[in-house]
Amino acid sequence: MFATIAKLLMKRLIVAIPILLVVSALLFIILRILPVDPAAMSLPPNATLAEIEAKRLEMGLHLPLIQQYGIWLAQVLHGNFGTSIHFRRDVASLVMTTLPSTIELAVFAMLIASIIGIAGGLILFHVRGTRKEAGLDFGSILLLSLPEFLWSLFLILLFGVALEWLPFTGRLSPGVERPTITGFLLLDSLLAGKPAVFWNAVQHMLLPCFALGISFSPSIMRVLRSSLLDVYQDDYIHQARLRGLSERRILIRHGLKNAILPTLSLMGVQFGFLFGGTLLVEVIYSYPGMGNLMVDAIRNADLPIIQAVGLTYCIVVLVISIAVDSLYLILNPKLRVR
């Protein structure tokens, strides 16, 4: 099995290289076609035309686009993403300080989406054919039709403003000191032995994670329900019943184990979308992640950051899809090489 996974990883890596090249080229060229002059942006507003022209030459903006891309790519491969025009800081370090926050947000949101999705799917399946089905069906469609930013606002209003149970801005309360070891706040606070900081961080994450998780769970629910319905038509379920197994055992061991496979493919795709979905949620909760960095960068036409963040999103989505495919391989014996 490990050989099969290794083979899959090799294959996917080979495919990932051209994908990254295409994405990076698109990012670079589209951003350069925009009517934004990086030279003018990187100089103070009172710079003269001559100064701007000199800066243009210095930045190599007079060269053909392809050549510019080549130079940029060579730099990127050396780990140099350039300097932010707005923040005047190294782009790579900016991305590296914000990426862990976004990963934490996305992973926990996905966890919540999976738990709500799988539990909801099982409940939806359980009530099939009863009168409760229509009501729960309506509920799941209602969940499905609300986007994550509405959930964000709703949760802020309810738990943040009305009930005042949870904080809804930033990562930590003012005055709480942040330990830095790996960059992952939750992990660092535990490593540094500061449960109070950890607890504070968790409280700040609850609302954004739930906002994202709830909005991504209904499709998991519905796919799991329908694949369970399919699986229950199969002979082995009937045969398991005829062997006198209990309904619970049949559902978990025979039904769910088969029905989870199509659900898993969907969850992989969902995770990719969810990672993109963090952007809006981060902005709403002033969560210091990559999404906020991206929005700032777009506002300021900070091209190096947009390029680097765009590329990071692309890499993360590729990694997620490879991980899901490997998991699929582990769970589905038919795909393993004998």
Partner: peptide, 25 residues
């Protein structure tokens, strides 16, 4: 009745390939 099934009363199915769960050995 469920106690009888699988123990005293057993079934041999029509489609052997689909009567076994594909993800379990």
């Amino acid at each position: 009745r469920r106690n009888l099934l699988g123990r005293d009363i057993v079934f041999i199915p029509q489609e052997p390939l689909s009567a076994l769960n594909p993800v379990l050995t």
